[in-house]
Design a protein around this nucleic acid. Structure first.
Length: 822
DNA sequence: TGAGTGTGGTAGC
DNA sequence: AATCGCTACCACACTCA
C-alpha cells in the first residue's frame, strides 16, 4: 500500500478557528447530506470523546480532497480512463477500498464515500453483497473490483456487465428439473410466466434496446443525416434467430435437420424454425402438432427449448459489432435485428460492409448467420433483406430495380402489412393481386380507398422504393421515435380465476409490477386503460391450447386521473373499480392488460428535492440533531422515510385510494367542510358532517380495509349495514320536512350507480326495499308531507329505473351473489 | 372541427 | 404432460360539444 498516512494530514490543529455554523453552511446540499450520512454511519463506531462533529467532518472533507489531489499528482499520468465514472465501494473487497480509491482517482474517476444521495454514483464495486443489500442497491450497476483492475491493465474501459456481481443465490441454486406450473392465483405466477414467455422477452428486449439508444444518444449526440442527404440503409437480421442460437448451443447442425424452438409438443407455438423445417411448409407461429404432421413419414422434427440468456448474449455481440462499425446510426429494431445508416456509399463499398459484418457476426456467435438488405431507403433495405434470406445479402439501387425483384416479393413483405391488410388488398381487385409487381399497377386512389388514407399512401410509396414520412422519423428524429410513450402489461395465458377477490389480488400484483417500472423511469401516469379478454359465448371453457385464452371478446375501458401519479393505492383501486364496470364474471376472464397511457416526467422540483432518510437522522448524536434540523429546515430539505411515502395523514391516504370519481366528491366534501368551519354555520356544518360521514362509510364499503396490500373487501357486512342505517336515518329525518337535499340525493344516486356498475344490484334492491317498507310504515302519518312525496319520487324515478334497466343482467348477477355475500 | 375513446392491426421469434 | 398467446405504437371510426 502506498504510504498515505491519514493521521498525518489531519488538520486537527485548525479546529478552533472554524466556526461550526459556517462549516455546515459552507457545504453544498450534497455535502450536507453526505456529512449527515457519514456522521450517522460512524456513530456506531467508537470514536472517542476528543473528536467533535465539526472537526471530524471537516477533517474528512479536507483529507479527501487532499488525498485525491495527491493521488492524481503522484500516479495520474493524465489518464482519463474513468472520467465521468464515480464509484462507491461496498464491504470487503480485494483489492481493498483504499487501493480502489487510488486506482480510480489516479485514472480520472471519482470516488464516493457515502451512498447518501442517489444518482451520484455510477457504479458500485463489491465482491460480495448480502441479499438485503442487494435488494437495496438493485438499481445500481454493481460489479466486481476486477473490473477496475482489468480495465487499467487493458488501458481501456471494459464493459462492466462482464464483471457484474452475480448473486450467490444465482450461482448456488441448482438447476431444478422442470418446475410445475404456478397457478395464476399464486404470487409467483407473473414471474414464472414472464421467465418463459418469448413474447415478453422480445418486447422487453426491444424496450431495453430503445432505452439504451436514447441513453447513448444523450451521452454522445449523434450526427443525424439531413433530410436532403443521400443515405445508405443496411437492414440486418439474423436468420431464424432462436432456432440458430438454440441449435448452436445444443450442438445441432442447423443445416442438417429440421429444427423448431418451442415449449411443448402439441398446441405449443413454434417461435422459430430453421430453413430445413420450412422446406416442409413449417412456419413460425404454427403449433408444433401441426408442424409434426407436415413432416414426411419417418422424418423426425427436432424440438429445442428456449435459451433466453444465450439469445441475449448473441444479440449483445451482434450489436457490439454494429457499434464498432462506422455507421452513423445504429437503430435497434429488435433483439436480432437492426437498421444501420450511413451517407452515400458505392456499390462495392456496401458489399465490403455486408461481407465484413456477416463474417464477424458468424465468428462471434458460433456460426449463426445474418442476412443483410441494403438500399437507398428504409423500405428498399427491408425488401432487399427479404430477398437476401437466408444467409445472404442484397444491395439494391432504386433505379436499377427490375420487374423480377418486385415479382418475387409478396404483399406481406411490405413493412406494416400483415395478414389482415394483405387479404384486403389481394381481394380488392380481380384477379387477386399476388405480388408487388402487380401491386405497383394499382392506382394511389384505389389503394387509399382499400386500406385507408395513411396506409394507402405508405404502400404506394413503398412499392416505388420510397419511405413515407412516418417511417422516416426513425432516421431523422430518432430520439423522439425511440422515446417511450406508454407502459403496459398483458397476460393472456394461464388466466383462470374463480372469485373477484383473486382477480383483485392479481390486479394488485400487475399494478405493482408496472409501478416499479414507472418509478424506474422516473415517470408518472395520468391515464389508465384496462383491457380484458372474456371468453366468447359458446366457446369451450377450456380451449385446445393448455391454459390458453381461446376465442375471446376483448373489452377495454380507460380512465383519466386528475393528477399524474405513481401511487399504488390510486392506480390499483382505479383498475379494480374499472374491472367491475366491465361486468366480466370471474370465471369467464381469460386475459388482462393494464396500460399507463400518458406518461409525464416526475416534476423536476419534486424529483430533485433532496431529502434525508429519517432513520439516518434519528441515528445522529443527539447534540447535533437540533442544529442539523435547523439547517435542513432553512434549506427546505425534508426528513423522510427512504421508501417515499407521500401520504401522511390517514384522511389523505384514504382519499388517495378512492376511485377518481368518488375521490373528487369526497375531496369536495372536505373542501366544503373546511369552508364551513370558517363560516361557522352550525346547522350546515352538521349536515355536511353527516353527508361526509355517509360518503366515507359508503367508501368503506367499497374499500374495506384501508391497507393497500390487502384485497378489497366488498362483503363487509358492518359497513353495508352502517350505510343502510345512515340512509334510513336520512329518510326518517327528512320525510316529515322538505325531503332529501338535492346535493345529498346526487351523492346517493352516484353511490347506487356505483353499486349497479359493479354488479351489486342485489344491494340496490335491498336499499330499494327498505326505503319502500319505510315509506309504507310512515304513510299513515306523513303521506301529506312534502318529504314523503319527494321520497316516493326518488323511489319511483331514481331507484326503480336502475333496477329495471339492469333486469337483463340480473340473472347473471344473481350467480355472483355468493361472492358478494349479501 | 377538434378532442377524446375504444378497437384493430402490426412487429419482433 | 401440457404450456408460458407480450407489448408499444399507429391509424381509424366513432362520439360529443
Amino acid at each position: 500500500m502506498s504510504g498515505y498516512n491519514y493521521e498525518e494530514d489531519s488538520p486537527l490543529a485548525n479546529k478552533s478557528n472554524i466556526p461550526e455554523k459556517s462549516f455546515l453552511e459552507s457545504l453544498s446540499d450534497d455535502g450536507l447530506l453526505e456529512y449527515i450520512a457519514g456522521l450517522s454511519q460512524e456513530q456506531g463506531e467508537d470514536h472517542g470523546e476528543q473528536y467533535s462533529r465539526g472537526d471530524y467532518f471537516h477533517d474528512k472533507q479536507k483529507r479527501q480532497e487532499k488525498q485525491d489531489r495527491e493521488f492524481r499528482e503522484r500516479y495520474g499520468n493524465g489518464s482519463e480512463l474513468f472520467s465521468g465514472i464515480s464509484i462507491y465501494v461496498n464491504g470487503f473487497t480485494k483489492p481493498g477500498r483504499l487501493q480502489l480509491h487510488e486506482m480510480v482517482v489516479a485514472n480520472g474517476g471519482k470516488f464516493v464515500h457515502f451512498l447518501s444521495c442517489k444518482g451520484r454514483v455510477s457504479h458500485i464495486i463489491a465482491s460480495n453483497l448480502p441479499l438485503k443489500k442487494r435488494v437495496e442497491l438493485a438499481s445500481y450497476k454493481i460489479c466486481r473490483p476486477e473490473w477496475i483492475v482489468d480495465s487499467i491493465e487493458e488501458g481501456k474501459l471494459l464493459p462492466w456487465q462482464d464483471y457484474a456481481l452475480l448473486s450467490d443465490q444465482d450461482e448456488i441454486q441448482p438447476k431444478l428439473p422442470q418446475t410445475a406450473i404456478v397457478s395464476c392465483k399464486h404470487p409467483d405466477f407473473l414471474k414464472q410466466f414472464f421467465s418463459k414467455s418469448r413474447l415478453h422477452h422480445l418486447s422487453n428486449w426491444k424496450s431495453d434496446l430503445r432505452a439504451e439508444f436514447c441513453e447513448r444518444f444523450l451521452e454522445k449526440p449523434l450526427r443525424i443525416p439531413g433530410k436532403s442527404e443521400v443515405v445508405t440503409v443496411f437492414h440486418i437480421d439474423f436468420d431464424c434467430f432462436f432456432a440458430s442460437v438454440s441449435a448452436a448451443a445444443n450442438g445441432f447442425d442447423i443445416h442438417a435437420e429440421p429444427i423448431v424452438v418451442c415449449h411443448g409438443t402439441k398446441n405449443s407455438d413454434i417461435a422459430s424454425c430453421n430453413y430445413e423445417a420450412r422446406r416442409y411448409g413449417i412456419r413460425n407461429g404454427m403449433w408444433v402438432g401441426t408442424a409434426v404432421r407436415m413432416m414426411p413419414r419417418g422424418k423426425k422434427l427436432v424440438r429445442l427449448g428456449y435459451d433466453f440468456e444465450q439469445f441475449e448474449l448473441m444479440s449483445k455481440r451482434f450489436y457490439q459489432i454494429l457499434h464498432d462499425s462506422q455507421f452513423e446510426l445504429v437503430l435497434p429494431i429488435s433483439i436480432d435485428e437492426a437498421v444501420c445508416v450511413t451517407g452515400y456509399l458505392t456499390h462495392s463499398e456496401c458489399e465490403l460492409i455486408c461481407r465484413g459484418i456477416r463474417e464477424n457476426v458468424s465468428n462471434v456467435t458460433n456460426g449463426c448467420t445474418v442476412s443483410i438488405g441494403c438500399g437507398g431507403s428504409l423500405v428498399l433495405a427491408r425488401l432487399a433483406l427479404k430477398r437476401s434470406k437466408p444467409d445472404g445479402y442484397q444491395i439494391v439501387d432504386c433505379d436499377g430495380l427490375d420487374d423480377v425483384f418486385w415479382s418475387h416479393l409478396k404483399i406481406e413483405d411490405l413493412p406494416g402489412v400483415g395478414h389482415s391488410l394483405a387479404c384486403k388488398i389481394s381481394e380488392y381487385s380481380y384477379p387477386p393481386i399476388g405480388n408487388l409487381l402487380e401491386l405497383r399497377q394499382m392506382a394511389q386512389d384505389s389503394l387509399r380507398r382499400c386500406v385507408g388514407e395513411k396506409m394507402g399512401n405508405k404502400i404506394y410509396l413503398a412499392v416505388r422504393g420510397k419511405d413515407d414520412e412516418e417511417s422516416c422519423k426513425m432516421i431523422y428524429e430518432p430520439r423522439q421515435f425511440f422515446q417511450r410513450k406508454s407502459l403496459s402489461i398483458d397476460i393472456n395465458w394461464g388466466i383462470r380465476f374463480d372469485t373477484i377477490y383473486e382477480i383483485d389480488e392479481f390486479i394488485d400484483r400487475c399494478t405493482q409490477y408496472l409501478i416499479d417500472k414507472l418509478r424506474e423511469l422516473d415517470k408518472k401516469t395520468s391515464q389508465l386503460t384496462l383491457k380484458i379478454m372474456k371468453r366468447s359465448k359458446d366457446e369451450a371453457i377450456e380451449p385446445p391450447k393448455y391454459l390458453g385464452m381461446g376465442k375471446c371478446d376483448p373489452v377495454a375501458r380507460s380512465t383519466r386521473l386528475g393528477v399524474p401519479t405513481d401511487e399504488f393505492g390510486v392506480i390499483a383501486t382505479e383498475i379494480k373499480s374499472t374491472f367491475r364496470s366491465l361486468c366480466c364474471p370471474p370465471r369467464e376472464l381469460r386475459g388482462i392488460a393494464i396500460q399507463f397511457n400518458k406518461l409525464e416526467k416526475t416534476a423536476s422540483n419534486q424529483a430533485k428535492l433532496p431529502f434525508v432518510d429519517a432513520k439516518i437522522y434519528q441515528n445522529l448524536p443527539s447534540d447535533v440533531k437540533s442544529e442539523i434540523g435547523r439547517e435542513l429546515n432553512k434549506r427546505s430539505i425534508n426528513i423522510r422515510r427512504t421508501a417515499p411515502k407521500r401520504i401522511n395523514s390517514y384522511q389523505e391516504q384514504f382519499i388517495q385510494e378512492l376511485p377518481t370519481q368518488i375521490r373528487g366528491e369526497v375531496e369536495n366534501e372536505i373542501h366544503i367542510t373546511n369552508k364551513v368551519n370558517k363560516t361557522k354555520f352550525d346547522e350546515i356544518k352538521e349536515q355536511v358532517a353527516k353527508r361526509q360521514n355517509e360518503k366515507v362509510n359508503a367508501k368503506s364499503h367499497f374499500l374495506g380495509e384501508n391497507t393497500i396490500l390487502l384485497p378489497i373487501k366488498f362483503q363487509n357486512q358492518t359497513n353495508f349495514k352502517k350505510i343502510i342505517q345512515l340512509v334510513m336515518n336520512w329518510v326518517d329525518g327528512t320525510i316529515r320536512s322538505q325531503g332529501p337535499h338535492e346535493k345529498d340525493l346526487r351523492l346517493f344516486e352516484k353511490y347506487l350507480q356505483r353499486l349497479s356498475d359493479t354488479n351489486r344490484l342485489p344491494l340496490v334492491l335491498r336499499i330499494c326495499k327498505l326505503i319502500s317498507v319505510k315509506l309504507e310504515l310512515r304513510s299513515e302519518f306523513f303521506s301529506h308531507c312534502n318529504g314523503f312525496q319527494e321520497w316516493e319520487k326518488v323511489l319511483l324515478q331514481m331507484i326503480l329505473p336502475k333496477l329495471n334497466k339492469n333486469k337483463h343482467t340480473f340473472q347473471t348477477v344473481r350467480k355472483l351473489d355468493i361472492d358478494f355475500d349479501t
